[in-house]
């Protein structure tokens, strides 16, 4: 199956069909998706602000990251579930929309970065790590996740 074929299959799925037919479902799922965005933004920013030395400075980076972890994972799952439903309802539009591909690229990079590089840095012994690295990691994380959020918003603009 070609990539476009897969997108067409998604568009024609029963779930996609049901969401398109309803006047309320899409707005409702989209609103929950937006709440998830706010939540994931908070969980990401708490850790990134700490790495930048601008947030909870008296706690260790590792502790802040551990506290934020369940909320990061929870909101990520909420985002993927609601985002998947939204995608099923308008897969063909997404296929031809630059913002969608920008978002998916940012999302892939953000996920890989967060769960490999950033996790290594936050869990590392901070006394043996140059503070500059923490700041660079935080900036990259903010940029990548911003790309995901803003890219997502632009899928809605034609």
């Amino acid at each position: 199956m070609s990539l476009l074929g897969f997108f067409q299959w998604c568009e024609q799925s029963g779930i996609g069909e049901a969401i398109r037919k309803s006047a309320w479902l899409f707005p409702l799922i989209e609103a929950i998706h937006l709440l998830g965005l706010g939540l994931i933004g908070g969980a990401v920013l708490v850790v990134d602000l700490r790495l930048l030395g601008l947030g909870l400075r008296r706690q260790s980076v590792a502790q802040v990251a551990r506290d934020a972890q369940p909320w990061l994972l929870g909101s990520l799952m909420l985002m993927i579930a609601t985002g998947g439903l939204l995608f099923l309802s308008e897969a063909i539009k997404c296929y031809y929309h630059t913002a969608f591909w920008l978002k998916m690229t940012s999302l892939f990079l953000a996920l890989v970065f967060t769960f490999t590089v950033q996790r290594k840095v936050t869990m590392a012994d901070q006394t043996r790590l140059r503070p500059l690295w923490g700041k660079v990691v935080a900036l990259v994380s903010v940029l990548l996740w911003s790309g995901v959020g803003i890219g997502g918003r632009w899928i809605g603009f034609s």
């Binding site: 965005l37 933004g41 969980a43 959020g149």
Partner: peptide, 28 residues
């Protein structure tokens, strides 16, 4: 402007929620 509004939502809503969750004893 709409994008800025959504971005700032993460900063405001996300961190306000974190504080609310602390008040509720659900994090930190």
């Amino acid at each position: 402007i709409e994008s800025v509004h959504v971005w700032a939502l993460c900063l405001f809503f996300g961190l306000a929620v974190m504080f609310d969750l602390r008040l509720l004893g659900w994090t930190m």
